[in-house]
Amino acid sequence: MIYWLGVATLVGIYLIAVMGVSILCGFTGMFSLGHAGFMAIGAYTSALLTKNFGIPIFAGIIGGMILAAIAGALLCYPTLKLRDDYFIIVTLGIGEAIKLIILNAVNLTGGARGLSDIPKGSSFISVWAIVIITFIVLRSFINSKHGRNCIALREEELAAQSVGINPIKYKMVAMVISCLLCGCAGGFLAHYMHYLQPNMFSMVKSDELIIMVILGGQGSLTGTVLAGLLLLPLPELLRFGSAEQWRMVFYGLLVVIVILFRPAGLMGMREFTFKDIKNVAKWFRSEYSKKTTRNKV
């Protein structure tokens, strides 16, 4: 039971990061392959602040969020003018560079040996409370003018400019939001694991974040969360069949299947609503009644 509570906590932590990436990649249309790097900034900042200066954990996490957001804003300001594909390459470089800096700043971060004895603090309740708050906040962001402007930039940048949307500003907004959330997830991760190591934030992690956004549907927050809930516990489930090393193969297979059969992702650009739940329930009921009548016959 405690084990599954731990898994659920971990899923929640990554969901926070995935939702952040969803705003940047799904809604604003800027793909990033380096967001694990911003998670690392949040994680190490929070860990070092709480460990060395003894400040409370929530303050440490906020510090990590702010530093990740500042780093994201500074690194990306000169690159936002680049076309999509070049932006991806830059983020890839940034993510790896952050990892390498942490790896080589041995005195501060412990380098490859890792950073241990980080204060405990991420509980199931605190993590999932943040997940829910993040979801609500992002939802109202997307439905506001500012979220709509981000979507307009994804759809057609030139047209968006021609109605008076400042592209740099809104790309920056999306970038900062995603970095804040990745920093937050990193902080929670540090206080959940009590131990950090640069390899936890490799490119594979960034890929996983992106894959969940693509699988869930670009431009659907609920879709992203759904994909996250589906994929994040997967390594733990596969562990039982000692098939853990097959995880990435499975991810890749899943992406191929989704691209073949649902090119827009699980939810496409739609949001999952209560109405959908009702419809699904109705469908189940009708299927069930069909079966029972068939059995009677």
Binding site: I151, A152, E155, E156, L158, A159, A160, S162, V163, G219, M269
Partner: peptide, 13 residues
């Protein structure tokens, strides 16, 4: 304000 020669709408909206 302007329109474009090759229409540029927000196609998926």
């Amino acid at each position: 304000a302007r329109t474009f020669q090759n229409i540029r709408l927000f196609n998926d909206l």
